[in-house]
């Protein structure tokens, strides 16, 4: 288990923990907007740490770059989706 493997194990475990936090947040929080908050913060960080953990295992800089691009796209998609869902929630609550 050389240094790179240790780093991968540590980062992927941290990422998995944040996925856990995101899912628990999605289940436990009282209303839609707080769930949204927990969801987007946690699973993006979780995915980011997983990508970070997989970087040393990738062959070549291009592969690493592609992983980072995947994370950034997921961030963009998650941010935009949460904005849109939040706006949909506000529109559907009468006079909220």
């Amino acid at each position: 288990m050389n240094l790179a493997d240790l780093f991968t194990v540590a980062a992927v475990c941290a990422g998995a923990f944040f996925f856990l936090a995101g899912s628990v947040g999605l289940l436990r929080f009282p209303d839609a907007l707080t769930r949204l908050h927990a969801l987007t913060k946690a699973d993006n960080l979780g995915l980011g740490l997983v990508v970070l953990g997989l970087l040393p295992r990738v062959d070549g800089v291009l592969g690493g770059l592609k992983l980072v691009v995947i994370w950034l796209l997921a961030l963009l998609a998650s941010a935009a989706a949460s904005q849109l869902i939040a706006r949909a929630v506000k529109r559907s609550e009468p006079g909220a």
Partner: peptide, 20 residues
């Protein structure tokens, strides 16, 4: 909206699992 959030979570989680 809660269901759409869950679908969004499953999307990101799916990408993570796929990479692993």
């Amino acid at each position: 909206a809660d269901r759409m959030m869950a679908a969004q979570l499953i999307g990101t989680g799916g990408i993570g699992a796929l990479l692993l």
